[in-house]
């Protein structure tokens, strides 16, 4: 959470808003913010901390663990039209990677900007070559892209 908060200004530059969601009440969110988060990142978490009482939102999004009564670590990238572009779901013991979140958002923004004329191959990052899908690319990806570009 604070890892995302620390990069919030950079996310805003990419026109991104963050919504964090747990089954805790908004009142517990406030206490967590005051007692802990604000000590980990200056000013605390700068985005809305949503309360998902009884896990209803999590149930709809398929991330609510009924036995444990909590939402697992689910992350959804939603585009400006309200369409889900990416989903990542992890069990609780392992945290997510904010750098990978950035990479995916940058890639989806590129695809959207070019209206799909350019796509982002494996491991793509800004500055690396994109692919331009079309009949002439079929069977010719090897000419313009090699696996070492993924790393």
């Amino acid at each position: 959470m604070t890892a995302v908060a620390a990069k919030y200004e950079d996310l805003k530059k990419l026109d991104v808003e963050v919504l964090s969601v747990s089954v805790d009440s908004q009142f517990v969110h406030k206490v967590w913010q005051t007692e802990e988060l604000s000590k980990m990142v200056e000013g605390g978490v700068p985005f809305p901390m949503v309360s998902d009482g009884a896990g209803k939102i999590g149930s709809v999004y398929g991330v609510y663990d009924e036995a444990a009564g909590v939402n697992v670590r689910g992350r959804f990238i939603i585009d400006p039209d309200g369409v889900i572009q990416a989903i990542e779901i992890l069990t609780p013991p392992v945290g997510r990677n904010v750098s990978e979140l950035f990479r995916q958002i940058q890639a989806f923004r590129l695809v959207r900007k070019t209206n799909g004329a350019e796509v982002a191959p494996s491991g793509w990052q800004p500055g690396k070559p994109t692919l331009k899908p079309g009949p002439e690319l079929v069977g010719k990806v090897w000419e313009v892209w090699k696996p070492d570009l993924a790393f």
Binding site: V18, F47, V50, G58, V72, P80, I105
Partner: peptide
């Protein structure tokens, strides 16, 4: 749903963010 945001309690609606990219982040607690 209700949210804690910028020191206040307020309702947050996902569709209010149409036009922006949204990262919706669930976590256990």
């Amino acid at each position: 749903a209700p949210a804690f945001y910028k020191g206040n309690f307020q309702q947050v609606k996902l569709s209010d963010f149409l036009g922006k990219w949204v990262v919706l982040c669930f976590y256990p607690g």
